[in-house]
Design a protein around this nucleic acid. Structure first.
Lengths: 219, 219
DNA sequence: GAGATATTAGCACGACCGTTCGTGCATTTT
DNA sequence: AAAATGCACGAACGGTCGTGCTAATATCTC
């Protein structure tokens, strides 16, 4: 066959390259979460990490590709911090509540030093057409679909009213969570996280089914 | 005395200077709402407006002062678009609802081409200490105090329950309004504005006093 | 070992950045 | 009319940006 007889994944050269890329991206997501994707500069990354400018550049091929790779890396970190903790929870209202809490904990704990990476970066690019906005829009759709799925699951268990609007609930929850982020950062104050938590629980309670209502009741 | 005998306000030279400063700032708020305060560049403003770089620079003294002036200019525009329309409405729940609607209209109509100026710029600087963050934090406090004042006014009229928490309500309303902004921009879709409107009204309805409850009832 | 291959370094480029300087010009003051 | 004031200009400064080259250095294949 055309492939080499040995396992390509053990090639120490490409492993070294991937390791360098990971090092660069670890720094890049931190910078971008605080200062934005525009503030990423190849020379600055190289200086900070003790690498050469051309070395960093070669690892990505262009600045835009570096930015796109930074978004992908941030998506993984976000997923690990927010989604993984709720993976073992059975579907239903409890899982939805847990998501809210894990998101708030993710922002509060500064998993990214600038708070939520996507809050910062979506604001930066939501009005600028191009591949970066497209990538961020795709990520947003994915995140929104995740929340929406959890809401409908909580409705399917009968814990939320059958006539509740999942889209509106998902919108509200996301808005409340993200609303806490800038206020906490701007004013250096954690109480917005508690307000967001209360408000989210309140909304879910308002849409909760009566305890004696059978699950999956018709509209 | 040291004052000149003629009216200083008729000095055509400083009037001309103020006019160019206004021209520069008009452009600056538009750019910053889309690309952020970091994307403001003196050379770019000069080129766009047919001025010289040094001329633009001289009007502000430093880039940071230009950025601060841009924030002040945006505050005025925001106030005109969002606060002025509710000025004549009598205090109460109706005025609070009107504020929500005027804010959503402000974002939707792209008073700033990048949506809400402060959404963009707060995200950019909420994690970066310095004069810009300080100015934005002060603006945020002012905006928050305005909303809070409208909420407590609506409670004082007896339209909201006396045991409602104005801080939580203000937080929730602001989060819902601002939550619509990035989603509408990122996905080029106006339905978030309707969802935000519904969710805001819903929250206010949930905290509304019973129609037969006397105003200013004790806690 | 030799040779192929992939990652990194060194260097130079053109463009743009914020800022400073000296100058021209219109206006106001004397 | 002369002097002083305030705005805008053009040119130039040192720096940083992204991006090409070429050369050196690891690692793998044979």
């Amino acid at each position: 066959m055309a492939g080499s007889s040995t396992n390509a994944s053990t090639d120490g050269r490409v492993l070294r390259g991937e390791e360098t890329r990971r090092t660069v991206l670890r720094r890049a997501v931190a910078i971008a979460s605080v200062e934005g994707l525009d503030a990423l500069s190849i020379g600055r990354l190289a200086t900070d990490l003790g690498l050469s400018k051309s070395g960093v550049f070669a690892g990505f091929g262009s600045k835009e590709e570096l930015q796109l790779a930074t978004i992908r890396a941030a998506r993984r970190i976000f997923s690990d911090a927010v989604l993984d903790p709720i993976a073992e929870e059975p579907p239903g209202l409890g899982r939805l509540r847990l998501l809210c809490e894990s998101w708030l904990a993710y922002s509060r704990a500064r998993v990214f030093p600038g708070g939520c990476f996507f809050y910062e970066v979506n604001a930066e690019y939501d009005a600028r057409p191009g591949p970066l906005r497209d990538a961020l829009a795709a990520n947003w759709r994915e995140w929104h679909a995740t929340v929406l799925g959890l809401v409908t699951a909580a409705r399917d268990t009968g814990e939320l009213r059958a006539d509740a609007d999942p889209e509106d609930i998902a919108f509200t929850l996301i808005a409340l969570l993200e609303g806490a982020n800038p206020q906490a950062l701007l004013l250096d104050d954690d109480t917005p996280y508690e307000r967001a938590h209360r408000a989210a629980l309140r909304r879910l309670r308002a849409d909760a089914a009566d305890p004696d209502t059978p699950a999956l009741r018709a509209h």
